[in-house]
Amino acid sequence: MNPIIVNKLAKSYEKVNALKGISFEVEDGELFGLIGPDGAGKTTLIRILASLLLPDTGKASLVGNDVVKDFHEIRKIVGYMPSRFSLYTDLTVQENLEFFAGVFGSTIEENYYLIKDIYHMLEPFKGRLAGKLSGGMKQKLALSCALIHKPKILLLDEPTTGVDAVSRKEFWAMLGKLKAEGITILVSTPYMDEASLCDRIALIDKGEILSVNTPKGIIALFPQKLYGISTPNSFSLLNHLRTLPICKDAFLFGQEIHVTTSNSNITCESLHDLLSNSGFTNSTVTLIEPTVEDCFMQLMGNNR
């Protein structure tokens, strides 16, 4: 049986339907990404899995334990990192670790091998108050605290939000190592570029799952050809493209504009000529492989 099973899970608050009956499964030892913007329902889902919230309808289980009935069991096997910074700011790094180890009836030494790498980075600051750490370090400490009892399943709610690009990369590298230890990891993130670092991902928006697949699989399902256009003046080209009838979607992607067309006869050359004729002479057009973000936007568009 898969360690995480989510079956038609629904939850609504007063006004909003946070989850509209979603289903998916996470396999043993998988690094599974839950990818979607704020308000997609990521936090609600993770809290239900952590047995902190009750679903309205549907079922979910972790290693065979029902999240509603068997919450005592679940709390023994889960490591959870909420989206907010959730450590004691007035305790030092060392004291936080000791405390959380104590809460789980464990010690830092017992599962030291798990947090060794992270702890190594934290060690120079172990006497520092957690409140005085930088964002990246806080996040590493929070991860250590969630790992200290050697959980079977790690639930991480937006661990990289608000953290700079370098710390994010380091954090994902750590998740890779934990996966190698056999821990099943469910991680949510609003950063689409982190999708490629997961084994499989679920794209989620407005309480619905748009797609569940490997990042490559999701990209392979992109229904159209995607053109990348580079030009020195992207914004005016973007506005121009949107006036063209053959253009389906046009979005900025860093230095490029990603364009899909409704006309399958279009080629890079014909598109380039079309633009040149309109005065955008020094643009280059290439056929490109979509990113997960392209797929997300395309699926979001279908969904609306």
């Binding site: 704020d38 609003p190 928006d205 979001m300």
Partner: peptide, 12 residues
């Protein structure tokens, strides 16, 4: 950080 957590279409 005006676009933190916002969906990719809105962000653009």
């Amino acid at each position: 950080e005006p676009t933190g957590g916002v969906d990719p279409i809105t962000r653009r």
